[in-house]
């Protein structure tokens, strides 16, 4: 029977499509500023938010958005202060997020760690009609925001000091990016799962980098591979009866492997056909040590 015959699969596929678009679209800026693991840290914090939802008897998605956003802003503020390394701030979030989630779910009436599993690794049947509405709305807001401030975010992530001199609102844009990363994580958690969402923000970008040069081209290819991996992973998990998050990431990693091979071949062929111009030193040769 076709998976599209089931309402839950229609919802899962639509969600996967949106998540496949949004996750790399935001993730490319995190990779650009060399904070690829930030999505992972936020995912851990969001787990505390999910557990808080169970404890308070409210929608876990709502509390996850709030807690993840607060955590992401704290990470960004710590990074801006520069007193604690960005990696240390992330580590604190990893430990605190997991510990908070397990602790709070234990305190929730009737709560067990099993309640968290669907949020940790994603679930085909977990995407409710309300979730689809929330995912669609938040994805729309994220994509619209990126369409408006994408060039500014690129400038800030590329060269923060230059952006300051150019008069861009650097602090606001950095916090906006942190908030967008938090919303992306919570949007994606129903399909991919909190522990694997970061992979969908990073792996398609890494895949695109093997094939194209330039930021805009990387974004386009990353969005395409993100959608392909998400939809293929959800469909595959229907037939294999597995958690979709794991299969989405495995498909994405497979794509990365293929792209790496292709990219290597293309670069070798290009190098063989293009002699390097005379007197044109490569950066490493031109920088004194």
């Amino acid at each position: 029977m076709s998976p599209l015959a089931f309402d839950f699969m229609q919802r899962a596929l639509l969600s996967a499509l949106l998540v496949g678009l949004v996750a790399p679209a935001v993730g490319v800026f995190l990779v650009q500023r060399r904070m690829a693991l930030m999505g992972d840290g936020i995912g851990h914090i969001a787990l505390t938010g999910v557990a808080l939802g169970f404890l308070l008897g409210t929608a876990p998605v709502l509390t996850a958005v709030v807690v993840a956003t607060i955590g992401a802003v704290v990470i960004e503020l710590v990074r801006q202060q520069g007193r604690t390394g960005g990696d240390v701030a992330l580590a604190l979030m990893f430990y605190g997020g997991i510990a908070g989630g397990v602790l709070l779910i234990g305190l929730a009436p009737g709560g067990t760690n099993a309640n968290l599993l669907a949020y940790l690794f994603g679930s085909l049947t977990a995407v409710s009609p309300t979730d689809v509405v929330v995912i669609s709305a938040l994805s729309g807001v994220l994509l619209l925001t990126l369409a408006v401030v994408g060039r500014q975010l690129f400038a800030v992530c590329h060269d923060e000091e230059y952006a300051k001199v150019a008069g861009l609102p650097v602090r606001f844009l950095n916090i906006l990016l942190a908030v967008m990363a938090a919303v992306t994580v919570t949007v994606a958690m129903r399909v991919v799962g909190l522990l694997l969402v970061s992979a969908l923000m990073v792996v398609p970008v890494a895949t695109a980098q093997q094939l194209v040069r330039g930021f805009r081209a990387t974004v386009v290819v990353a969005l395409g591979t993100g959608v392909l991996a998400s939809v293929a992973g959800v469909l595959g998990s229907y037939y294999a009866d597995t958690a979709p998050g794991a299969l989405i990431v495995v498909v994405a990693l497979g794509g990365f492997g293929v792209a790496t091979l292709l990219g290597t071949l293309v670069r070798r062929r290009r190098t063989a056909s293009e002699p390097s111009p005379a007197g044109d030193r490569r950066p490493t040769e031109a920088i004194p040590r």
Partner: peptide, 15 residues
């Protein structure tokens, strides 16, 4: 001039 995601000359100059 070099970050996690390489940019083209035109993209950088345009900023």
């Amino acid at each position: 001039a070099s970050t996690g995601v390489p940019a083209t000359v035109r993209e950088v100059v345009a900023t």
